[in-house]
Design a protein around this nucleic acid. Structure first.
Length: 574
RNA sequence: GCCGGCGUAGCUCAGUUGGCAGAGCAACUGACUUGUAAUCAGUAGGUCAUUGGUUCGAUUCCGAUCGCCGGCUCCA
């Protein structure tokens, strides 16, 4: 067991990094250097752009400092002294930092020739830092604001010993192999091309097939749970977006207007206004509530070019959107059922570890009655509690229009992703004057809940690819069975098996090429096809199949019936 | 958008004093008839991202643009 927590080790490593950088570039201005989730970084203002070679050199120096086993010591001083000390060191960012900090006592940490303003804590001596590795250099604005100068940020990681560092680096390698952009290309699932534009996805046949399966399952589950499906257009008039408030609050994220017949139209960034108009098409009675409108609605949002990332951050995507419109009395039950519904959907895709984050009313900017906020927050918290799942409360983290639950799922290698969100909206019902006629014959304002489970199909698909490492379960695999012939004489038998499988609804492909069986297996494995049916003379004579399962290997010879039912059974399991 | 890196065949990548553009895989053709992760031979495939400059000559050097990658930022 290490003497210090990782965070302390990493924070200390950040100091050593700064020390090493100052050794080579004495005029460097220091930004901040915290420990982060899987390592640490330090920001520097430097004349020279750092290169890979510089990193190697700096890392070497860091190793030396660690070996020297310098002692970490600390001292405090008041604001005046601290400022003049930093002035003397010519550290303007640190001076700025002190200016913005409360109190009059500032601690410094010193090791060898290096002194840094810092709250600590640190390890006692540098050798306790263990093993370090510098990972990359990138740009970062001082204090995260674009108005400030851009500093150079060096990222690194540290562990208490070499072995753990090696394991971490190995995990990173593994994660890299799962990259959906890489697998998307290898498995021919989708592409994003320069000709179409960044963040606009072309779904290739195999990707589109998987998406179709996801969508079909999604629709079926919604219909079975009393949702109504809607379909709405991709564009709408400017007036609509004025009314919804998007043009005042969200315009910077919208594609610019299209003019048709002297009218301005906008491509939709959200589906809500359309769903609301469906609701408002006819007066609604309390007897009709709750109403649950769901749509796989394709929206377009402007994302800055630098933010685009494979399928995870795109400009055109399909939300699995739904709007639940209900009375105050129905609210609690609706929240509960939508939460359970989300979990069930996510579980079908192998996500069992789910965490909730409840975000409540912001302190200042918010719309609607405080009492409505309180009721809805209680409803959200109730729902999570009743499920007995882990959750955290983010006080004041809600949107201005309502409180929400964000749901995070954990994938096969322990990474967290946010997909689902369940949000109250006190804004749009007001803006669109949504009402229902209550038992008392009066008009009432309904509650409206937005929710998405996958969030975006593009993003969810990207996450799925990484989660499964491209090894889709049988029910989702674009090709479920590949029939491989040992020689060309056997192609008749193979064709017969293929057509029988297809008849049973199994997605089957046939490889009768004049290659050796090893080659065909290698090829099918590369495509990550779950089942390989190897057939030769022996199998034809005995009406059997030699079954091979992807990632498991040879399952041996079985009767055609048994082999078929194995695939069929598995294709039904989610 | 900003900082830095990168852009050579469908894919993965070689290509240095600046002098005819290369390999493996994939594709195609042929031979082989194969028993559990790569059979052999041949053919074809390129505006070296685009564009301007330097030069007798640019994939190579310089500039601009576009795109991608790592971050920052953004995510009412």
């Amino acid at each position: 067991m290490a003497k210090f927590p990782l965070e302390t080790i990493r924070h200390s490593a950040a100091h050593v990094l700064a020390q090493a950088v100052l050794h080579f570039f004495p005029t460097a201005q220091l930004g901040i250097g915290p420990a982060i989730d899987d390592g640490f970084y330090y920001d520097f203002d430097l004349e020279k752009s750092l290169t890979e070679d510089d990193l190697v050199m700096i890392e070497k120096k860091m190793e030396e400092i660690i070996k020297e086993n310098q002692q970490f010591t600390t001292f405090s001083s008041n604001k005046e002294k601290a400022t003049s000390f930093l002035k003397e060191k010519n550290q303007k960012y640190k001076q700025e930092l002190i200016e913005s900090l409360e109190g009059d006592t500032f601690t410094f940490f010193e090791n060898g020739p290096f002194v840094d303003l810092c709250r600590g804590p640190h390890v006692e001596q540098t050798r306790e830092i263990g093993a370090i590795k510098l990972l990359r250099v990138s740009g970062a604005y001082w204090r995260g604001s674009e108005k400030n100068p851009m500093l150079q940020r060096i990222y690194g990681t540290a562990f208490s010993n070499r072995k753990e560092l090696r394991l971490y680096l190995k995990r990173m390698e593994e994660a890299k192999k799962r990259d959906h952009r890489l697998l998307g290309k290898q498995l021919d699932l989708f592409s994003v091309t320069e000709e179409v534009g960044g963040g606009l996805v072309l779904w290739h046949p195999k990707g589109a097939l998987i998406r179709h399966l996801i969508e079909s399952y999604w629709k079926e589950l919604h219909l079975n749970n009393d949702y109504d499906l809607l379909i709405s257009p991709h564009v709408g008039k400017a007036d609509l977006w004025e009314k919804s408030g998007h043009l005042s609050f969200y315009e910077e994220n919208m594609f610019s207007a299209i003019e048709v017949d002297e009218q301005k139209y906008y491509v939709k960034p959200m589906n809500c206004p359309f769903h609301i108009l469906v609701y408002k098409n006819k007066p609604k009675s309390y007897r009709e509530l709750p109403i649950r409108y769901a749509e796989l609605g394709t929206v377009y949002r402007y994302e800055r070019s630098g933010a685009l990332h494979g399928l995870l951050r795109v400009r055109g995507f399909t939300q699995d959107d739904a709007h639940i419109i209900c009375t105050e009395e129905q609210m609690k039950e609706e929240i509960k059922s939508v939460t359970t519904f989300s979990i069930n959907m996510l579980k079908a895709f192998g996500f069992d570890k789910i965490k909730f984050y409840l975000a409540t009313r912001p302190e200042e900017k918010y719309v609607g009655d405080v009492s409505h906020w309180k009721d809805s927050e209680a409803a959200l918290e109730d729902a999570i509690k009743s499920l007995g799942l882990p959750y955290e409360v983010d006080h004041g983290g809600g949107a201005f229009y309502g409180p929400k639950i964000d749901v995070k799922i954990e994938d096969a290698i322990g990474r967290e992703w946010q997909c689902s969100t369940i949000q109250f909206d006190f804004n749009l019902p007001e803006r669109f004057d949504m009402t229902y006629i209550g038992q008392d014959g009066q008009k009432h304002r309904p509650y409206m809940i937005h929710r998405a489970i996958f969030g975006s199909l593009e993003r969810f698909f990207g996450i799925l690819v990484e989660h499964y490492e491209g090894n889709f379960p049988v029910w989702l695999a674009p090709t479920q069975v590949s029939i491989l012939t040992v020689n060309e004489k056997i192609s008749g038998y193979a064709k017969k098996l293929a057509s029988e499988l297809k008849e049973k609804g199994i997605r089957t492909q046939l490889d009768t090429s004049s290659e050796k069986i090893g080659y065909k297996i290698r090829k099918a494995s590369g495509e990550k096809i779950p089942y390989m049916f190897v057939v030769g003379d022996k199998e034809e004579e005995s009406n059997t199949i030699s079954v091979r399962r992807h990632q498991k290997g040879d399952l041996g010879v079985m009767t055609v019936e048994k082999a078929f039912s194995a695939v069929i059974e598995e294709s039904k399991t989610m």
